[in-house]
Design a protein around this nucleic acid. Sequence first.
DNA 1: GTGCGTGTTAAACT
DNA 2: CAGTTTAACACGCA
Length: 258
Amino acid sequence: MPELPDLQVFSHNLTKALKGKKVKRVEVHNTKKLNVSSKELSAALEGKTLNRVERSGKELHVHFSGDQVLGLHLMLNGKLYLFKEKNEQKYTIIEILFDDDSGLVMTDFQGIATPTLNPKETDVPDALSDELDLKYLLAQLQKKKTAVKNMLMDQHIVRGIGNAYADEILWDAKISPFSIARQIPEEKVKELLKSIKNVLKDAEKQILKTHPDIIAGEVRDFMLVHNSKKKETPGGHKIHQKPIASRKTYYTDEQVEY
DNA sequence: GTGCGTGTTAAACT
DNA sequence: CAGTTTAACACGCA
């Protein structure tokens, strides 16, 4: 599953590929997760022009003229494809056909990737937004007795961080993922905030450099800790693994447990 | 053939 | 009751 930096690159590339195209038709093949009827969705989007694609947490927001927004959440295994003339993908959830006969399709063999017409705005800050600052992060951490990794991945607290990047961020900040959130000293929370921003932004740059046109899948090979191919970090520290909340977690002895 | 990975939600559990 | 953990989703991939 793509995580925040992958999605950030997708949004950029989708904007580039689709900006200015006019929607000819919307076809929903799987309405299970859609928040409106396929009729309503068609009515909302047909004839509208695609303005841009943005990332919001782990969701992509496709902005159309007339203030219409289509949210696309890929969940675990959702994928996006562009096509010319005909969508030939299996497991199609939704496809948007433009009036030049090109199109965008979202697939998911599990059927849990979710399209949402005009998704509700939320007060939860995106990991890369300015609203995620030291004051907010401290206040949230102090409320929690759970492992800091669980808190980082909780989309009700910070939007956009998944399993793999949580490990990378905590290693970068030299904080053990098992640390109890409220016990992390303020000085270290500063480090954590810095690591959140740096790790995610750096990853986006790496992905853009190595996969300039990517709109699906995920790029993980540059990861230093959350990487099954790596036995030790660049500094030569052995990488351990142990589940947290049944998710595989990679860490080293460099990380202090609070 | 086998089992792991992956986000979210709802249900189960403490 | 509130907070936390687990099952389900169902296939690609190694």
